[in-house]
Nucleic acid binder design. Structure first.
Lengths: 149, 149
DNA sequence: TTTTCTGCAAATGCTTTGCATGGGA
DNA sequence: TCCCATGCAAAGCATTTGCAGAAAA
């Protein structure tokens, strides 16, 4: 995982590059995105910000995350059943391991995937732009019957 | 791809197994799901049914697809930006190739993925239940500037 | 001072649900 | 005949949007 401080500076730099303003609310969101600790949902980011910036609105969190998503600086893990998750630490496609019980998401190394997008492009004629690989299961903690610790 | 007729019979059999009723509406939905031609959205299934069964409602299509999804006889490809897609032909996890321009979805063989779920389970302690691998790109037709043909 | 950003609340769009009626078995 | 399934319309819910006031630069 990249250094959170370095990544935060990168994100702030991207803002300025595009002549966007650095507001306290945006900085608060970026700090969480840059940390890469968990893969937070919008709601989670909102909760984490509230203690420091109680005046921040959910809409602003949405807008900030969307802004960086459009700059390809945040990876969105969309789930149709509500609560998309975001990764501002490693904004490029990479595999994830998802606990369907507690919702934990962790990054994964899958060497076997190397070169596959290129291979698919050659085999099919598609111009491959992105990909997504998720594994769903039950994490060790949840298997041990401690769903929420 | 499995034979559509065979698959249809399987799906009908699953209904009876669970003491559900075979209605004309359900049969119409199942025919489309079993065909495995495209990976239709709910709306698409609805459109395809209407000529034959104009009285069918969207809610019923939703209910039927949900029923088979819960029986693990239909694979749901969820997309957060609306319009989930369904595969009743091969209801187990398999890679897909998705054109982000025209929405075409096709099945894919990715040999490199074989054994990976098992490997991930061993490496992480997760009990892997499912997975999903999607490649996003532009299909040959759309590259040629014929987005809708 | 200018222009963008924020926060509120209303709108959106897919999906689900409640309930009275209709129709399989 | 007995329930289950259907169809309608309303409800749900995460996300987006419009707009007036606030605040970066």
């Amino acid at each position: 995982m990249p250094d959170p401080d370095t990544r935060l500076k990168e994100l702030v730099a991207k803002l300025k590059e595009r002549n966007h303003r650095l507001t306290p609310q945006r900085l608060a969101v970026l700090k969480i995105l840059a940390a890469g600790e968990e893969h937070p949902s919008i709601e989670r980011i909102y909760e984490q910000i509230r203690p420091d910036f109680p005046m921040t609105s959910l809409a602003t969190v949405y807008k900030t995350v969307t802004l960086f998503k459009e700059m390809d600086e945040v990876l969105e893990l969309g789930f149709n059943n509500g609560g998309n998750r975001y990764d501002g630490s490693k904004p490029y496609p990479h595999p994830h391991l998802i606990c369907t019980q507690c919702g934990a998401i962790e990054d994964l190394e899958v060497d076997a995937l190397r070169g596959i997008p290129h291979q698919v492009a050659q085999d099919t004629g598609y111009r491959i732009v992105s990909h997504r690989l998720d594994f769903f299961g039950i994490c060790p903690k949840c298997q041990a019957g401690q769903p929420y610790t």
